[in-house]
Design a protein around this nucleic acid. Structure first.
Lengths: 248, 248
DNA sequence: CGAAATCTTGAGTATAATCAAAAACGGTGG
DNA sequence: CCACCGTTTTTGATTATACTCAAGATTTCG
């Protein structure tokens, strides 16, 4: 009774709670996890390809991307990260980072030592499994993105990306009236889709013209979800949402 | 002394041994893992998108692919699998499969119940970590493929794919004199690269014409590794090979 | 208010797709 | 061993999606 943490939560407990319904004990441990919190301004690398970090980070607030740069300077974004994500959890078991992680807005980031995470996994196997599961979902999303980039043309590809974005934000409770944040620039969208920013612009114009979306400032509104979903060939199975999360 | 398994090995122990240097005890458990072995002819699905399998499989011999099909029937291959791979290990923690797994040659496949794997991870945490690590490497390769498909033109993209293929086969001891198996058809290469088979053919012609590769029957020979590596912008870091494996 | 970044538009070009058909290959059975 | 059939590879001609280059409009932010 003494240490009940009902009502307390962090972006991380929220996320894991969705998966495994944390016990009070587990929740308590997670909330009290030793963590170095830091605010990082927009467009700053948090870790870089080639680093050998001894800690992973949780995005507590803001938006971030993981990406890779090719020899001739082109950039591929692999994922957009939101509150609750642990974008470099992989470094727990892979010594060298093979991608970079960068903020796209001001972020509040929590760093946790790998030793602490390893200890957590040992003492609380359910949390360990949930974390493994998280990395497997990341991999699943990579497969879907690969499919999107390799096998859908730009208009459909963008529709798919927007459906996924809205779905993930909804899961995190960040959607109101079919409207959510859209912090990425057209250059960043281009780097995620494997096209040029000019082409992103044209595709967005078209989506607007067709009455599927509204996009101004940093706010996205989906006007015709069913149509956008159909065009983007979007099936959220690959996000492996649990239960009620899956509901639109 | 009684149960020493020195010298005994399976594709799976070989792979894990590369990562964590198995103890006799661990090796013995892995060799005696209850496993249902089955031979499957070429071009057969082993598991399909949407399945909820209660077991994972190890490729004991032959070559396989994981892939996804879009709404309008296009196919994206996410990975080519070789002896020792566990292509659907993810299903251990994700109930619904979000991709399919198919043979491309006759394969010998071993099926292991998830319950057995979970028990293994609990009793032998080092093996558990090694398996998690394997799935993280898969994810790393997905990121690289996404980059390859999204940000490199077909000629470079094919070079990269061939470099990776040769490197992975070398790690598994399947390369002799810069020559290895190349079991995939041009259609399959196309589905992996996100282009048409016609274009794959033209790119291969060009690579042959430039003296970089030889490709006939189902055998690939790399004639100019340095050049192919340069063209493909290939850096094997993302494969996370250990020690001497990394050597060409 | 002004500079920098981002977004938008246009014109010309290139990489890769599509369509179609022929050649080569690989396995099978007579 | 060779003929045959289906698959795979190859080649050609045309088209389309997306890129490049460039400049102008708009937004953002100090």
């Amino acid at each position: 009774m003494a240490l009940s943490n009902h009502g307390h939560s962090t972006p991380l407990t929220q996320k894991l709670d969705n998966i495994i319904n944390l016990t009070d004990d587990e929740r308590s441990v997670l909330i009290n996890l030793p963590m170095q919190v830091q605010t990082i301004t927009a467009d700053q690398d948090i870790v870089r390809e080639g680093d050998r970090p001894a800690r992973s980070c949780v995005i507590l607030d803001g938006y971030a991307v993981t990406y890779k740069t090719t020899g001739d300077g082109k950039r591929q974004i692999h994922a957009f990260h939101i509150r609750g994500d642990v974008p470099d959890l992989q470094s727990l078991h892979l010594t060298v980072l093979d991608n970079s992680l960068s903020t796209i807005t001001t972020c509040i980031v929590g760093f946790i030592q790998h030793e602490v995470v390893r200890d957590l996994c040992r003492r609380y196997p359910r949390i360990g499994e949930a974390l493994w599961r998280e990395t497997l979902i990341d991999a699943s999303i990579f497969r879907e993105w690969m499919t999107n980039v390799g096998r859908r043309e730009a208009y459909d590809r963008m529709s798919h990306l927007l459906c996924e974005w809205m779905t993930r934000l909804r899961t995190a409770g960040l959607v109101q009236d079919h409207t959510c944040d859209m912090p990425m620039t057209q250059q960043e969208l281009a780097d995620a889709m494997g096209v040029t920013p000019v082409h992103v612009n044209r595709v967005l114009q078209e989506l607007r013209g067709d009455g599927l979306i509204e996009l101004k400032g940093n706010k996205l509104t989906i006007l015709d979800w069913e149509q956008l979903k159909a065009v983007g060939d979007f099936d959220p199975t690959y996000l492996h949402l649990v239960r009620e999360q899956a509901a639109a």
